[in-house]
């Protein structure tokens, strides 16, 4: 018989599963035009109304564009990566997904990445097109740091989406929650509506959202220059989301295997 697999083989196997899951999810997004519409329209609408209501000066324009993109990213995350497990349940594929050879978490994060890339891609295209159409003066002062920021955005949104997915799995009304969670973060996420506009007793809320720190980092990177603190906080929060997501997911799966509800719709 074969001995225990080598660490290198294990890692390679996990990476292969992860990438396949990402690719599969991206493909199934293609068959779902609603997600495309939600990810594509929201940044356009928000950007146009925010900018045309009062044309911003050049330094403020970049901030608005960043905030709009991250707001739209939240809006699409609740549906795309946040919906991964909900869709798994509707299709009845959850059982097979959690009973593969690799850890279910690898599959979940892979799928979440696939969905996030799709959402981020759509939002980027829609936003850039709108910026050009509106002739907004947006300067890219520190392209390297913007790229770093974008990478962190993808990782963070992937993790956040996985976390939402796991939380939605705990309830039967995931669809309802997806719809209900959009506007609270629009208002309290510290993105388009800055933190200091909120009443004092609510100002802690945006601090918990990694996207708010990425927003700060990207705004700085587009203007005065990048600073490390917001980036570090965003990464730390992302790690925390990942840990909570993994724990919740394990717990849900164990619970479902106990109850025999793994293949319930």
């Amino acid at each position: 018989m074969t001995g225990p697999p080598l660490l290198g083989d294990r890692l390679r196997g996990a990476a292969w599963t992860f990438l396949t899951a990402a690719r599969t999810e991206q493909r199934s997004m293609r068959g779902n035009p609603l997600l495309l519409v939600n990810a594509g329209f929201l940044p356009v609408v928000l950007l146009v109304i925010a900018v045309e209501a009062q044309r911003p000066p050049a330094d403020r324009a970049a901030q608005i564009v960043t905030s709009v993109m991250l707001t739209a990213l939240w809006g699409s995350t609740v549906w795309t990566s946040g919906g991964v497990l909900r869709r798994e349940r509707t299709y009845g594929t959850l059982a097979r997904c959690v009973c593969g050879v690799e850890s279910p978490t690898v599959v979940l994060f892979g799928k979440s990445l696939g969905a996030t890339l799709y959402g981020v891609g759509t939002i980027l295209v829609a936003t850039v097109a709108t910026v050009l159409a509106l002739r907004l003066p947006v300067a890219l002062a520190h392209p390297f740091w913007l790229a770093v920021g974008l990478l962190v955005v993808v990782v963070s949104a992937t993790t956040l989406g996985a976390l939402l997915s796991c939380l939605f799995l705990l309830t039967r009304n995931g669809l309802l929650w997806s719809g209900a969670l959009m506007y609270p973060v629009f208002v309290l996420g510290g993105l388009l509506i800055p933190q200091d506009v909120l009443p004092v007793w609510l100002r802690w809320v945006p601090q918990l959202l990694s996207l708010r720190w990425i927003n700060e980092f990207l705004s700085d990177a587009a203007g005065p220059g990048p600073s490390a603190t917001p980036l570090a906080v965003a990464v730390a929060l992302t790690v925390a989301y990942g840990v909570v997501a993994t724990r919740t997911y394990r717990w849900s799966i164990d619970k479902a295997r106990q109850r025999g509800s793994l293949d319930h719709a």
């Binding site: 925010a50 209501a53 309802l176 719809g179 506007y183 208002v187 506009v197």
Partner: peptide, 25 residues
């Protein structure tokens, strides 16, 4: 359930657009 979800959504939507109006213009 749908009232539970719709009511806060509507409230927050009004709040969002109103506050955003103040912020951008």
């Amino acid at each position: 359930a749908s009232i539970f979800a719709t009511l806060p959504k509507g409230v927050l939507q009004i709040v969002f657009f109103t506050v955003l109006g103040g912020v951008v213009a």
